[in-house]
Amino acid sequence: MTLPTKPLALTVNGQPVGPLDVPEGLMMQDFLHEYLNLTGARMGCGQGICHACTIMVEEADGAVREMRTCITGAHWFAGKKVVTIEGHAQHDAQGGLVALSPVQQAFIEHFAFQCGYCTPGFVTGATVLIDQLKRAPIPRAELEKTVTEALDKHICRCTGYVRYHTAVRDLILNTPGLLRG
């Protein structure tokens, strides 16, 4: 069986990709895994529930949004700029690690995960939250609740929630400009 395809071009982790002939109904996760060999967006449920598969999409104003790749078609991302888990840390020209992102660093320092299967989703979710707080700081009193609400939809089966939560909360407390009042 041949699937009808359409050309797809987008920017992934700062690099232009495509145009590639991609089946019309292919989900973004399959595109990342099978076409680009970026396997970090994890397949957990494949039904939009666990959020292990999320990536960031940059909007026109530079704000980032979290999208589930298991239930969003690859072609929805046509012409958009996306950041997968592979694009968070800084690398040198040879691909060597220069620095983890602040969220990744915080998760490591707090021993936030065990098996790590859910971690790409949590990194994505927490990074989007921090981006939102940069744009719209919140009062200190709302911090715990805001972190809970932002990460709530991410499922971790090693019950790492408390450490994830602490890591994100501490990072926000230690990053100037995210809280007001």
Partner: peptide, 23 residues
């Protein structure tokens, strides 16, 4: 149809068949 395949079909199926206990 593009919108449907991109945003709806992941849960509701390409032919609108749904997923039992999910959508």
């Amino acid at each position: 149809r593009s919108t449907y395949l991109n945003l709806c079909a992941g849960c509701h199926g390409a032919e609108g068949q749904g997923i039992p206990h999910v959508a």
